[in-house]
């Protein structure tokens, strides 16, 4: 069962994502800000990270950069979730190291596809 770490500061979004992913069979870990997210990523070794870009404490770009820099976490695929859909944001996300990019409001079906594409072996 794949473990997904959701780093999102908005309560509603976090709740929605967590429950829907859980229903799909994923093990969901939650973090409410960038710093906690980094810690959890290092500790719990998730298989994928869904990163909201606009976070308090440490924003999504910086967090992604650090994840990709850390030896324990660099291999974890990261999908950036952002409310802005500008090409600049897409470029910025990819530059920071994100593997994928999704705009909010999240099209859940599409998100699932992308998750499936990034997981090493998808069991579900």
């Amino acid at each position: 069962m794949a473990r997904i770490l959701v780093i999102e500061d908005n309560e509603l979004n976090r709740d929605m994502l967590a429950r829907r992913l859980a229903r799909r069979g994923f093990e969901v870990l939650l973090a409410i800000d960038g710093r906690i997210g980094l810690d959890k990523a290092a500790q719990a070794a998730p298989d994928l990270i869904l990163m909201d870009m606009s976070l308090p404490e440490l924003d999504g770009w910086e967090a992604t950069r650090r994840l990709k820099a850390g030896p324990a976490t660099r291999h974890i695929p990261v999908i950036a979730l952002t409310a802005h859909a500008f090409a600049a944001d897409r470029a910025k996300a990819l530059e920071a190291g994100c593997d994928e990019f999704e705009t909010k409001p999240v099209d859940f079906a599409r998100l699932l596809e992308k998750i499936g594409g990034l997981l090493p072996e998808s069991d579900s």
Binding site: L12, L17, A83, P105, V106
Partner: peptide
């Protein structure tokens, strides 16, 4: 953001 919640929850 609130709309995401409305849409997302109803979908859920």
């Amino acid at each position: 953001t609130p709309l995401n919640a409305v849409i997302g929850y109803s979908q859920m």
